[in-house]
Simulated scan of single mutants.
Amino acid sequence: MARPFGFSYAQQGDGTVVITHRGRSAGTLRGPRASKFLTEVESGDAQLVMARWTGAYKFGNERMARNHPRNR
C-alpha cells in the first residue's frame, strides 16, 4: 500500500507487523506491541503513528505543521 510520506505496513499471518519506509524495512512488531500498533494506526493519522513507532518522529513539529494555515 503506497503512502504519501513513504511509510507503509503489512500484517503477516502470524500477527507480526512489518513497517517499511520507502521500500526499506523500518521496524518489526510482534505480540502485544503489534496489536497496540494496529489499534493506534486505525484510530489516528497512520503516517504519524508509523513515524513515531519507528523512531522517525524526530522533529516534534509534525503535529503543529498539520494545523498551519498553508496546510489546511
Rank of each mutant, 00 (worst) to 15 (best):
Q47R: 14
T54Y: 01
D14P: 00
A10P: 10
T20I: 08
L38W: 02
Q11C: 13
P69T: 00
A26T: 11
S43R: 15
F59M: 12
Y9N: 08
A10I: 12
G6C: 01
G27F: 04
M50G: 05
F37Y: 10
Q12G: 09
E62L: 01
A65S: 05
P4H: 03
S25N: 12
R72P: 07
G6M: 05
Y57Q: 06
A56T: 07
E40G: 01
M64A: 14
N71F: 09
G27H: 02
S25W: 03
V18K: 07
G44T: 08
N71H: 13
G6D: 00
V49C: 08
N67I: 11
A2L: 15
R3W: 03
T28F: 06
G13F: 04
G27N: 05
D45S: 11
R33N: 14
W53G: 00
A46C: 08
G31Q: 06
E62F: 01
R70E: 10
F5R: 06
M50C: 06
A34R: 06
E42G: 12
L29W: 01
S25A: 14
T54W: 11
N71A: 04
F5E: 09
A65K: 12
E42R: 13
H21N: 02
A65N: 14
G31P: 11
L48Q: 01
T28H: 01
Y9G: 09
R52G: 06
P69Y: 01
T54N: 06
H68P: 00
A2E: 12
F5W: 07
E62I: 01
S35W: 04
R70T: 13
G15P: 09
T20H: 04
P69S: 08
V18A: 13
G55S: 07
P32Y: 05
Y57N: 15
P32C: 09
P69D: 06
K36S: 15
A26H: 09
T28V: 11
P4D: 04
W53E: 01
T54V: 05
S43P: 07
F5C: 08
A26G: 08
R24G: 06
R63W: 03
P32G: 14
R72N: 04
A56R: 15
Q12Y: 07
P32D: 08
Y57D: 15
A26V: 07
N71P: 06
